Amino acid sequence: MKRLASIAFAVLFCFSLCGCKGENSGSDRRFTVAALGFSSDGALINVFAETVIVNSEDPEISPEARVISGTGATISEALDKIGACLSRQILLNHCAVIALGEDMTAGWLDKICDYCFKENRITMSAYMVSVKDPNMLLSRGPEASVAVGYDIMGMIEQQSERTGIAYNSRYFEVEARREGGKSVFTLPHFSCGEDSMEIDGLSVFYRDRLAARLDNGSSGLYALMTGNFRRGTLRFGAEEYTVESRRVDYAYN
């Protein structure tokens, strides 16, 4: 009897050390990932998963979002640790955002793209964004929806409509440039604090490495020069100009 009690205590103690709470295996609780964040720690990768917990037994209970982290020598190892904390397999097919830390190396970025989208693990229309601290971004709590990941998706679309900048940061757009031999692609850069979250410009990647950070003003000019500007107001010195781009298709006989 004492031995059984000791084993039970050891199991509970291990769960308390890893910060995980066991889920009732009889409950129908599903863990959907709304966003994934990645930061590099030398040879290790840190993964931050914003999970949305849905209980189908009681649809009146509001979905609950929380961020769980895992670190490993591979992305699979880090995600396995996150899954172990939840005691259930996590679902990646509804992930809306991939947040890359500014310390991300070219090698890790390539592995992230290969892992996340291999065998349709994540939809190819997921947005990719850049941020100094992915954990801080995803942990700040949702405002307009059930998860920060879905808030970010809405902010990118609203900012694009308001400024005229076509961010072209969905995975299939980024990967089309990478696989097409293009050395440069851009991602919207997010800054965040305890009470705010905003797009403050573009991160420019060259050969999968962060090469430059542009503020919102410079981002508009960059988008204009690269053909990713539709319509909006740009500032040149002290003057502001309303610019509208037009595309003309020529037919040759």
Rank of each mutant, 00 (worst) to 15 (best):
V243D: 00
R246D: 07
Q89D: 15
E239F: 10
L92E: 04
N228Y: 11
E77K: 06
G83C: 10
Q89C: 07
L109Y: 07
D249M: 13
V129D: 03
I53Q: 15
V248W: 09
T74Q: 08
D41I: 12
D151W: 03
Y115L: 02
T74H: 09
E198H: 00
L79F: 10
E102T: 06
L4Y: 13
T32N: 07
G237A: 05
V184C: 12
R178T: 08
N46V: 04
G70L: 03
A96M: 13
R170E: 14
A10K: 00
S40E: 15
R88P: 03
P188T: 03
P59Q: 13
L36W: 02
A176E: 00
V204S: 04
C20G: 14
A65P: 02
L86Y: 14
E119P: 07
S196W: 05
K21C: 03
D249G: 13
F185S: 07
Y115K: 04
T186D: 10
C18H: 00
N216M: 14
A212Q: 13
E244Y: 01
G232L: 01
Y222W: 13
L86G: 10
F31E: 01
R29H: 12
S203Y: 03
K2W: 11
L210I: 04
G164N: 11
C85K: 07
R213C: 00
V67W: 05
V129K: 01
Q159W: 03
E173Q: 15
G164F: 00
S76W: 12
F172H: 14
T242I: 00
L91K: 15
C20T: 12
S56Q: 13
C116V: 06
T233A: 06
G227F: 01
L91N: 15
R30N: 11
S139P: 10
G201V: 06
D110G: 08
N216R: 07
G149P: 07
A8F: 11
V52M: 12
E161I: 12
A73P: 05
L214D: 01
M104Q: 02
L202F: 01
S39P: 07
R121T: 10
G180N: 09
Y252M: 08
N228L: 12
